[in-house]
């Protein structure tokens, strides 16, 4: 977590800010107590569950005056900003928990299980709201911690039979292949070569041209037939024809003349496109139709 920033990967996000609580006497306006809080707001998503964990961590860093004694905070998840059906949270409200400034810094953690209902593709913008109170004041103060990365939940069938799950969709996942992995060595070498020699560095991490996932169908077949024609396949025999960008991407050969082919052992070609490699990546990152992803070749 970093102050003032949202740090996120495909499954977790963390945002941190500092809050100042002031207790003010009325009508004089005199401040009779202040407290400084470090507030962290986190998510932990699960690619095969509609329920994720959301956690607010409040730490009283320092306090003065009456705020030293009995400042309290409760927390709840606000699902109202969602598109479609909102998320639901258990428990609905947590707290209030007491902060004891006189004995040094107290940390209180509020953990929620948040669920995305139904089967539809839904975007959620779940926020954590804290309510701060003090025995000296009849009113309470509210603050939305905010900054949680948007959450997307779906029940898509074309990523594998794993039911509903959720990701942070603004983080593009990275598909990694190793040249040291004998099972896919030839494919990895070809992709690395293609990312360097083509006009555009298709899929190369953060180079501006992410691939977009294309599920199997007419277009992926057309991609395959355009790149790996019968003539090319015959030329590569006994090896198979490998193409990049993948036929399973919207950057494939049928719609993008900037592609590469190479002869690769058939077993490596099949393994890379199969359930243990690209299929697993698509499933575990919930890479839906037209979702962006990167392709990184490692040693």
């Amino acid at each position: 977590c970093r102050v003032g920033e949202q740090v996120s990967d495909r499954f977790s996000s963390c945002a941190e800010k500092y809050l100042i609580v002031s207790i003010v006497e009325i009508p004089s306006g005199k401040v009779i107590g202040t407290a400084l809080f470090d507030a962290k707001n986190k998510t932990r998503l699960n690619y095969k569950s509609a329920t994720w964990e959301q956690e607010a961590v409040l730490k009283m860093v320092r306090s003065f005056g009456v705020a030293k004694f009995g400042t309290m905070a409760s927390a709840e998840v606000d699902c109202k900003a969602s598109q479609g059906n909102g998320c639901t949270s258990a428990p609905g409200v947590i707290g209030p928990k007491v902060f004891w400034g006189i004995w040094g810094a107290t940390t209180n953690t509020y953990t929620f299980k948040v669920t995305s209902p139904g089967d539809a593709l839904v975007g959620h913008a779940p926020q954590t709201k804290v309510t701060v109170s003090h025995p000296s004041s009849p009113e309470k103060a509210h603050f939305t911690l905010g900054n949680i990365a948007p959450v997307r939940c779906d029940s898509a069938k074309n990523i594998g039979n794993i039911g509903r799950g959720c990701v942070h969709p603004l983080v593009k996942p990275v598909y990694r292949l190793s040249k040291g992995d004998k099972a896919v060595k030839g494919v990895a070498e070809h992709i690395e070569d293609a990312q360097h020699k083509l006009k555009k560095p298709w899929g190369a991490v953060n180079k501006g041209y992410p691939l977009h996932r294309l599920p199997n169908g007419d277009l992926s077949r057309a991609n395959r037939d355009t790149a790996c024609t019968t003539a090319v396949k015959n030329r590569y025999k006994p090896k198979s024809c490998d193409e990049y960008p993948f036929a399973g991407s919207y950057e494939g050969a049928a719609v993008n003349p900037d592609y590469s082919t190479a002869p690769v052992p058939l077993s490596e070609n099949r393994t890379e496109g199969g359930f243990k490699y690209r299929g697993k990546f698509i499933m575990q990152n919930r890479v839906l139709d037209y979702d962006e992803f990167w392709v990184e070749i490692t040693k």
Partner: peptide
């Protein structure tokens, strides 16, 4: 009394 809460200014962060 009244209780107020706001985000800390950069200069107020330790």
């Amino acid at each position: 009394t009244r209780i107020e809460i706001r985000e800390a200014l950069p200069s107020e962060i330790p």
